[in-house]
Design a binder for these strands. Structure first.
Length: 285
DNA sequence: AATTATGTCAACCGCCATGGT
DNA sequence: GACCATGGCGGTTGACATAAT
């Protein structure tokens, strides 16, 4: 026989998490770490399945999450990474500390995808959409963008930056030796979107973004303080990887009063407006 | 002011790889 | 080796917010 099932799903709560549930989950994980997600809801007194708890923690409660809108640089990196990795959101997310795969996936599907399409670029292949499929408007867009691109004075810079990222992706995935010979599938996938194509996309994308009223855009996204965006990344070393590899150390490394303070602060934290204060507290300890 | 359309994102679902029994 | 639990992942959905009419 194998292990016990994760949950029977009978009598389990679903839907949005309440503040009280968040309290319980966070309190439990901070005090006990993560050993087995199946046991977490039982021990924490939650009527949720372990899977749901894991998701809530990773996507929302994790203290090292970076909140706020994606920066233009992040979006550029995202496009570059997507051209190499495809829809492997967790892999892409691993290049963005504090961002979750869900967050990146959502951002891609709701914003970047549309913008690329608007540019006449297939977000799947990162190649220009075929003329027979594209509208007259798209054709014009492609022509316009390519003209602008060809006259871009930053071309060299983009290429070197993109190459650096490309090399890093490859190195991160396979170490210093690059692609293993056996992984022909991934090689082929990467070849789908040659670096030159990706650079063109990035350039077009930047031109497109540059044509927007960023002030209005950010207001629409509810961002009133851009400095808080760039500063919002937590310097805390706490992460889900940490909690998996050394979950006990969470409880050991944090002093009890700090932990209690953190839990007490969760109400303000759940709105995430007070997150910066929280970070300061954590960093202080 | 009411209704409809659109955008965003948290949460769920189902599949897969891994590893324990 | 077969079976099954578990964790992780990507795709999708649905609730809510906001904009447009």
């Amino acid at each position: 026989m194998g292990r016990q099932p994760c949950c029977d799903k009978v009598g389990l709560k679903r839907g949005p998490w309440t503040i009280e549930e968040d309290h319980k989950l966070m309190n439990f994980i901070l005090n006990n770490g993560i050993h087995c997600w199946r046991m977490v809801p039982k021990l924490a007194g939650l009527l949720r399945c372990g899977k749901s708890c894991r998701l809530r923690w990773i996507n929302y409660l994790r203290p090292d999450l970076k909140r706020g809108a994606f920066t233009e640089a992040e979006e550029n990196d995202m496009i570059q990474l997507h051209s190499c990795l495809g829809n492997r959101w967790s892999k892409i997310a691993s290049h963005f500390p504090g961002r979750t795969d869900n967050e990146i996936k959502n951002h891609w599907n709701t914003r970047i995808k549309k913008r690329l399409k608007h540019l006449g670029v297939d977000p799947l292949t990162h190649k220009p959409i075929e003329e027979k499929e594209s509208t007259e408007e798209n054709k014009e867009t492609i022509t316009l963008q390519s003209n602008i691109t060809s006259s871009s004075s930053e071309e060299g810079l983009h290429e070197s930056q993109s190459y650096g990222l490309e090399a890093k992706i490859q190195q991160d995935s396979y170490g210093n030796e690059g692609f293993p010979e056996s992984d022909e599938k991934l090689q082929n996938e990467v070849q789908l979107a040659p670096l030159d194509d990706t650079n063109d996309i990035l350039k077009n994308y930047e031109v497109f973004c540059g044509s927007l009223d960023l002030g209005t855009l950010m207001l629409n996204q509810g961002i009133t303080n851009t400095s808080s965006m760039s500063n919002s990344y937590s310097t805390s070393s706490f992460s889900i990887e940490d909690s998996n590899n050394a979950s006990i150390s969470i409880g050991e490394s944090m002093q009890e009063n700090c932990r209690q303070h953190w839990v007490d602060t969760v109400d303000s934290m759940l709105s995430w407006d007070g997150f910066n204060n929280l970070e300061q507290d954590l960093f202080f300890f």
